[in-house]
Nucleic acid binder design. Structure first.
Length: 740
DNA sequence: GGACATTGTCATTCG
DNA sequence: TGCGAATGACAATGT
């Protein structure tokens, strides 16, 4: 399996490098535009808005434990820094994010610099990318994120490992992890499709002038092809014996089992200058973050995570420590030293993994029977209750212990999970996106009768208002056509007298079309579309009796001269029936102007109009009633439209809120999972750190007499247990006092 | 014929 | 104070 992996990763890297060497830019944009947000995040990293940069972290060195540029004792360095950084990271709540930073390093065999290959290499853009950490004395400039990384490295004078076949193990591991991450995140299958790659490799081989013939591509790929499986979800091909457990991930990181030359190759690119061009810690933490994500992917289900205890191996559990946790320089382990603590401390070595068990005899007293012991040790930040499982307070060395009860289990009861799933179902299945889009379109096409600004009713109201105003201003323009009368005369349609049913007279009478109003209100369709559906014109209600059919049918009406008498009478009867009651009354009272004018004229013009005629009191009263009712009718229509829009908006808001609630619940699950992982991590870290502390005589501290205290300022102190107990009591009192 | 939807109208309030 | 908009309530009408 390892060989397969090696074959594959070497192949990927070499292929990329070869492409870059021949000037073919490996376009990662196809990744980025392939609607694979997680993949995009992998390559680009999350948005810088919420990506913590590590600028302040680049030059951090451990106090009193710096690293010599040429020192190959990286494991000690890593171990010490990892422990401390992780301890400090414990107070940072981190939700696991999909962030993978991968760098491909290559160097021109001749050692030429970037000028020869301006676009060579993978142009990987990373938000947290590889920040230049070398000093100006190295003649190093700030790397630009847009630049190809290989170019950067060359500019940096970074010592890249030999290109072909001699990739550093770190490169291989990075690519391996990245590749696996891509598989998990559903990268395009062509990326992993062996046949696709084989074709590319063939092209590559042709381009290589028949030069060196790598055997990996043939043998290894063939071996791979025999063991390929197809992912059920993504259809991707992946090795059948692909490791699915975390231990496989740990295989990807340096270990002692690797040949020494690989180890050296790992170190060589990192330790060439007086200052490493790559921040070791950042690289390492990136690796850690990658492994976290891998481990997250490995987890099968949330419920399993929430309710099943981890395997117990503190180093193989999914730690969610911030990879960019700033190292506090003023770490002080009072009365303690880390002498030799990391001499033989190799990360991920069996020694470390077995540490909790092997050193259990010395660590057992670390957790006294006193249930408040650990509370006191971390009492200053009140972290114990947060991070330590209850069992830890009462039992000894639960690092490799079996089941840890989840103290937060109450927060994640079955009901909540059921709610999450139900809401997801309701939202993802019950809420048809097509309907949503249609609704959205309706809102967008709405002439506007909603309450909010985006769908303000003012648009339609204003249109109607403007129609009214326009009609008032252009009320004398009696030549407006029936079709345009709607827009010009507004929604109010009180037809004129039946005697004036010709097209010209209809101008004041048409205005309101109940059918259109209905459609407009119900579906907000464009009246032009409605006109395309003539069979719908007379479907629906017509309570108004005020619509002059000429308004609708004027185009279809034959010329008046062509009408026979009988048809005229029929039409008159029909129109008479279509008239509103007010129109009938006005007609009966012989009101000399149209109801439309009565209703829509401004007050001043309306008064002028009244003054022009000698009208009886009954006529004046009727006119005022007509005007009042007409205006109220429009107002009622607007009011109902607004009401309907309000309901629709509320409905949409409810859907949005339900979606947000489901999302928040999912985030809560993630938070709690991260919290649980941190608790487990702090448990193991505490024991690791404490177990490696030595006094002046090189003897370990007694856990019954001393305890580590994690102060609020980030420092870790070794204090006498009595003092820690006192502080823990104070911490316990504070909440009680607050309650009082 | 009853339920329901639509529309018009009245009364009232508010700016 | 008058006007118009807004709105609840009710009635009329159609499906």
């Amino acid at each position: 399996m390892l060989s397969l992996k090696k074959y594959l990763t070497e192949g990927l890297l070499q292929f990329t490098i070869l492409l870059s060497l021949i000037g073919v830019r490996v376009d990662v944009d196809t990744y980025l535009t392939s609607q694979l947000p997680p993949l995009r995040e992998i390559i680009l990293g999350p948005s810088s808005a919420y990506t913590q940069t590590q600028f302040h972290n680049l030059r951090n060195t451990l106090d009193g434990y710096g690293i010599h540029p040429k020192s190959i004792d990286l494991d000690n360095y890593f171990t010490a820094r990892r422990l401390l950084s992780q301890v400090r990271a414990l107070d940072r709540f981190q939700v696991p994010t999909t962030e993978v930073n991968a760098w491909l390093v290559h160097r021109d065999p001749e050692g030429s610099v970037s000028g020869s290959q301006p676009n060579s290499g993978l142009a990987l853009e990373s938000s947290s990318g590889l920040q230049d950490v070398t000093g100006p004395d190295n003649g190093v400039r700030e790397s630009e994120t847009e630049q190809g990384f290989g170019e950067d490295l060359e500019d940096l004078g970074a010592v890249a490992p030999p290109v072909s076949g001699d990739l550093t193990k770190e490169d291989i591991d990075l690519i391996d992890i990245l590749w696996r991450q891509d598989i998990d995140l559903g990268a395009g299958r062509e990326v992993f499709d062996y046949s696709q790659r084989q074709k590319e490799q063939d092209v590559e081989k042709e381009l290589r002038d028949g030069g060196e013939q790598d055997t990996w591509a043939g043998e290894g790929a063939e071996a791979l092809a025999r063991n390929l499986l197809v992912d059920g979800e993504t259809g991707e091909s992946f090795p059948a014996q692909f490791p699915a457990d975390i231990s496989s991930i740990t295989e990807a990181v340096p270990s002692e089992s690797e040949p020494p030359d690989l180890q050296n190759n790992l170190l060589s690119p990192l330790l060439t200058g007086t200052e490493s061009p790559f921040d070791l810690e950042q690289q390492w933490q990136d690796l850690m973050s990658i492994m976290e994500m891998q481990a997250m992917e490995v987890n099968t289900s949330a419920s399993e995570i929430l309710y099943n205890a981890p395997s117990g191996d503190p180093l193989s559990t999914n730690y969610s420590l911030a990879p960019n946790t700033p190292i506090n320089q003023n770490v002080s382990l009072h009365q303690a030293s880390l002498g030799g603590c990391s001499q033989d401390f190799l990360l991920f070595s069996p020694e470390v993994e077995s540490l909790p068990v092997a050193s259990s005899s010395t660590l057992l007293p670390l957790v006294p029977s006193n249930s408040t012991s650990l509370n006191s040790t971390f009492g200053s930040t009140n972290l114990t209750g947060l991070f330590f499982p209850p069992q830890l307070n009462g039992t000894a060395n639960d690092t490799a212990g079996p089941e840890l009860p989840d103290p937060l289990g109450g927060l994640l009861d079955e009901a909540m999970l059921d709610e999450i799933s139900l809401m997801d179902l309701a939202i993802e299945e019950g809420f048809n996106p097509v309907q949503a889009s249609q609704l959205e379109e309706e809102f967008d096409s709405d002439s506007g009768l909603s309450l909010d600004s985006s769908h303000s009713p003012s648009s339609l109201s204003s249109s109607e208002g403007s129609s009214s105003s326009s009609s008032s201003s252009s009320s004398s323009s009696a030549s407006s056509s029936a079709s345009s009368s709607f827009s010009e005369e507004g929604a109010v349609g009180y037809s004129s007298d039946s005697e004036t049913l010709d097209l010209e007279e209809a101008e004041g009478a048409v205005g309101y079309q109940p059918e259109y109003s209905k459609f407009c209100r119900m579906s907000y369709q464009d009246p032009a579309q409605l006109s395309c559906l003539p069979y719908l014109e007379h479907v629906g209600h017509n309570h108004t009796y005020n619509m002059a059919p000429s308004a609708l049918d004027s185009a279809d009406l034959p010329p008046p001269s062509a009408l026979k008498k009988g048809s005229k009478e029929k039409q008159a009867d029909f129109l008479d029936k279509q008239m509103s009651r007010d129109e009938h009354r006005a007609r009966a009272m012989k009101i000399p102007f149209t109801n439309d004018k009565i209703i829509n004229l401004p007050v001043e013009e309306f008064n002028e109009l009244l003054s022009k005629y000698q009208l009886s009191e009954a006529q004046l009263s009727l006119i005022r009633d007509i005007r009042r009712r007409g205006k109220n009718k429009m107002a009622a229509q607007n009011c109902r439209k607004r009401k309907l829009d309000t309901i629709l908006n509320l409905e949409r808001d409810v859907e949005d809120l339900q979606r947000d609630k489901a999302r928040l619940l999912r985030e809560k699950v993630e938070f709690l999972r991260s919290l649980r992982q941190m608790k487990q991590k702090v448990q193991s870290l505490y024991q690791e750190v404490f177990g490696r502390l030595r006094d002046e005589n090189g003897r370990p501290y007694s856990p019954s007499q001393y305890a580590l205290q994690y102060a609020g300022d980030g420092s870790v102190l070794l204090i006498p247990r009595t003092m820690a107990d006192q502080q823990a009591r104070r911490q316990e009192r504070k909440p009680k006092d607050r309650r009082k």
